[in-house]
Computed example of a mutant assay.
Amino acid sequence: MSTHDEADAEAAELVETIDPGDVADGASFVTVCIQRWWNAGPEEQKRMWQIFVETGIFVAVCRHGFMLYICDMIQSGELAKYELALTDKLINVYGSNLCIGYDIGCTFSSTVSSSPLLAPKAHATNLRFVVPSFHGHAHNRRCQLDWHPLYITDAGLEDFEACESVFSFSNLVAATVCNATAFHRHQAIEELFKYWDEQKYANLSR
């Protein structure tokens, strides 16, 4: 079998079901990329959804590392509704020709295309998704050729991995907000990222 045939066969692997609200909802089929995405989230992690109301944050960060938007994930993991809401907000505020990096952007683009509310807006504004550089190597070869920023001319030298730095930094307050009230949790997160943005702004001139 040739290299292209192997890539086609790998990309065509399907799974039987898609969990409601998953980022793959709306896709015509699910490739090995989304299967690996699911495998990265162990089942044991879902137990915390029954313990905590807010189970994490979903963020949008610009290429310079500045925090744009934050939303709570409520008793769930990363569902499509969070990314759909943030994508809609980004289009409304920043307009056309956006390029958004998302871990499973290859499949999520199909979710956006099947959204009756967001699809026309995404098409009209020339919205583009890519798979971040580091995460891209967990995707199959055919996917990388279409979605990895290394092969996208307009992406330049950007790696689209700014969110990973944000999440690493946010671990500083993770232990302190687990049992906090909603108000104090939001206050701690807001103060943390206010400091984060100040540091990023100061570094722009260096």
Rank of each mutant, 00 (worst) to 15 (best):
H123D: 07
A80W: 02
S109N: 09
A124K: 04
N92K: 08
Q75K: 04
C106D: 08
V112N: 00
M73S: 04
I104N: 14
P120M: 00
C99H: 09
S109P: 01
A80S: 06
T107S: 13
C71E: 04
G95Y: 12
S96N: 09
T107W: 04
C106G: 14
A85W: 10
G77Q: 08
L84H: 00
N92F: 11
G105S: 11
L98K: 14
D103L: 09
S109Q: 14
I91Y: 13
D72N: 08
V93A: 07
A122K: 14
I104L: 06
F108A: 04
C99N: 12
S113A: 10
A122C: 11
S110K: 04
Q75D: 15
G101F: 02
L90H: 12
L127H: 01
V112K: 05
L86C: 13
T125Y: 10
K89R: 05
K121N: 00
I74Q: 15
A85N: 01
Y82I: 06
C99S: 14
A119D: 01
S96E: 12
Y94T: 06
D72G: 12
C99R: 13
T125H: 09
N126D: 09
D103K: 09
A80H: 14
I100N: 02
E83A: 05
V112M: 05
A124W: 01
Y82E: 03
A124T: 01
T87S: 12
T125D: 08
K121F: 00
Y82N: 14
L90Y: 09
Y102V: 07
T87F: 12
T111C: 08
I100M: 11
H123R: 13
L79S: 11
V93F: 05
E78W: 03
T107L: 08
A85I: 05
N97G: 14
H123Q: 11
N92S: 15
L117F: 10
N92W: 07
L118K: 00
L98V: 08
S76V: 06
F108W: 02
G105W: 03
P120F: 02
D72Q: 11
S76R: 11
C106I: 10
I74K: 13
L98S: 01
H123S: 09
L86H: 06
L127P: 02
Q75F: 01
E83K: 05
P120G: 15
L86G: 00
T87Y: 10
Y102D: 00
V93G: 12
S115M: 02
L118M: 02
M73N: 09
P120T: 03
A119F: 00
R128L: 07
L98A: 01
K81W: 04
K81V: 05
Y94Q: 10
T125L: 10
K89I: 07
E83I: 09
R128E: 11
V112R: 02
L90C: 12
S110L: 05
D88V: 00
L98Y: 03
E78H: 02
I91G: 04
Q75A: 07
L117R: 15
E83T: 12
K121T: 01
G101P: 04
S113R: 07
A124C: 07
P116E: 06
S114L: 10
A124L: 01
K121M: 01
L127Y: 12
S76Q: 14
L90Q: 12
A80I: 06
A122D: 09
M73Y: 04
C99E: 09
D103A: 10
R128V: 05
A119I: 02
L127V: 01
M73P: 03
I70K: 15
E78D: 15
E78M: 03
D72T: 10
A122W: 05
I91P: 13
S113C: 05
T107N: 04
A124P: 03
